[in-house]
Design a protein around this nucleic acid. Structure first.
Lengths: 325, 325
DNA sequence: TTGTAGGCGTTATCAT
DNA sequence: ATGATAACGCCTACAA
């Protein structure tokens, strides 16, 4: 019962006593309902009994198209936000007949990664912009990938992108600090490789608000945070890049005996569930990703159909004022 | 330059002025190096120029085996721990010639999910045990999947599993609380659907330590936490299921004016970076997953080769004593 | 040293 | 209403 090779549609045909073509007709129920209900039942029954499952590779070969959507996102953050987005995107794509699959980060970027993806002949590739190069895109194009989409914050020429407005985060946070009467603004820029670019964009946004902003590089480390806090004179408003860094600062401020928001105001970003547990409660910029899955699914669908599309935003931002400012 | 269909090995052959078989020989460099270095160069050059990438589906069809390893994990937790594990597993599998791919949670479980996975004719499936049913396993078997592996905490008959020792977590936490002189022990059981089963196992482990343990159902909600804390008489030792719940309790205890560990001791699990930032610092059970990727890769490899294997543990546990106990 | 040919599982066209 | 048959892209035993 186990060592056999997988059942083919030919096996099903034999078991049902019909031709193999009939099996194909029944199982994909082709429009022309020229097959008797009784035959259909026999075929379906045989398929069930044999545990027949169509061979995606063979179908791809024959039809010229795998319904595969390849998602190659960075391994770095993967917060619950991104996880939820992907889950919903998967659902949406499934509803439209696609199969979404996530490809790991082994082949880091560029042409090597593109070749690995291209082997699967996906109909769409959704990749972190940092992993796409011009040459890589060319490889995907040549492999017949209809929809090549970048994800990140700065679009790249030639392909539509799903963009996160990191500058908006910085701008919103700083504007809020100003409204709360802070004039001395500090923006944290994380030193971690994977997220530093976003930190720089949030910084740029912070500086667009019209007041001088002091940028501070910081690793996610209690020692560094303590040193940073020790240099504070009091009265500053700090945009901490995200909730994680904000929590790091909150702890350091607590240890140093500085009051929040009395001495220092802190704003994070992400509205993490854990960040609501800080005392004082953390003010944060909440990215609303609820529209993203539908937008992305539609974008993919359009591109696969050969239409041309522009970039699409991934979130809308909202400042959640709590006690830390 | 763009509307064409993907280049085939036949195209490469024509461009290089050789037969299609020669292309195949060169690109896979077959042992018998019976092809002149000059021809090889011509072939490789042509392949490069045309942007040729082999068609995984066609190769699978011909060779009878895709090197695909399908990972179908729950969408629920996906902490940085699991993310890191998968990344490393991907690397390990890549080194052995497999292609690892993560399949979303759309088809929730059972036969439907198994059929969706089986279409891709993976050589191995690594799935959350909650998503595998006997019938589903049968479908995968019938589709020729060589390695069917469950991930979870309680093995299921017939397939090897990668097991997490949740009982060990509970036992270790409670033993620590006892050592710290706590006699009244409370174990939190999360009410969230996806993680509740693990909560129950950790509870069972907690009860194996030989002292009475009061179980408390709790949603991840500040209101519920406050109500729970209000009912505490002081002196309890609480095993909070994980660091998230521990942080929830820490906040509630703080709000209620109870001292930690003076009035109540708290132990979490996971050793989250964010949980190190609480004041007092959180005592936690740290799961060490560093050996897991290698173990799993080896397990897959063995099964694919037809050897039979038993279960494998996913982690070793260590209690990290900090200030909350 | 290189070319020829067959077949993997599907779908779809064309006869019957 | 159903059954042959060809083709998709690739690998490989065998022939030249």
């Amino acid at each position: 019962m186990s060592g056999n090779r997988p059942a083919t549609s030919m096996d099903v045909a034999r078991a049902a006593g019909v031709s193999q073509a009939t099996v194909s007709y029944v199982l994909n129920d082709r429009p022309g309902s020229r097959i008797s209900e009784e035959t259909r039942a026999r075929v379906r029954d045989a398929a069930e009994r044999l545990g027949y499952v169509p061979h995606a590779g063979a179908r791809t070969l024959r039809t010229g198209s795998s319904g595969l959507v390849l998602v190659a996102l960075p391994d770095v953050p993967q917060g619950s936000l991104a996880t939820g987005l992907l889950e919903e995107l998967d659902r949406k794509l499934g509803g439209r007949g696609y199969t979404m699959v996530q490809y790991g980060a082994r082949e880091v970027k560029g042409v090597a990664a593109a070749k690995a993806w291209a082997e699967l002949r996906p109909v769409a590739v959704l990749a972190d912009l940092a992993r796409l190069t011009g040459a890589g895109i060319e490889v995907l194009r040549a492999a017949g990938v209809k929809a090549i989409i970048g994800m990140g914050s700065e679009g790249i020429g030639g392909i539509p992108s799903v963009l996160a407005d990191h500058e908006g985060v910085g701008a919103l946070a700083v504007r809020h600090l100003m409204e709360r009467g802070r004039t001395e603004i500090v923006a944290i820029v994380p030193r971690e490789e994977g997220i530093r670019p976003m930190g720089l964009e949030r910084l740029r946004g912070a500086r667009s608000a019209g007041v001088p902003v002091r940028a501070v590089d910081l690793a996610f480390d209690e020692g560094e945070a303590a040193a940073f806090v020790a240099g504070l004179s009091g009265g500053e408003g700090v945009f901490a890049y995200n909730d994680d860094y904000a929590m790091l600062l909150l702890a350091a401020l607590h240890d140093a005996g500085l009051a929040v928001p009395g001495d220092v105001a802190v704003v994070g970003c992400d509205d993490l569930p854990l960040a609501r547990l800080t005392r004082p409660r953390l003010t944060t910029v909440r990215p609303d990703l609820s529209e993203a899955p539908a937008s992305i699914a539609t974008l993919i669908d359009r591109l696969v159909r050969g239409e041309t599309c522009g970039d699409v935003g991934i979130w809308t931002l909202q400042l959640i004022g709590r006690d830390s400012t």
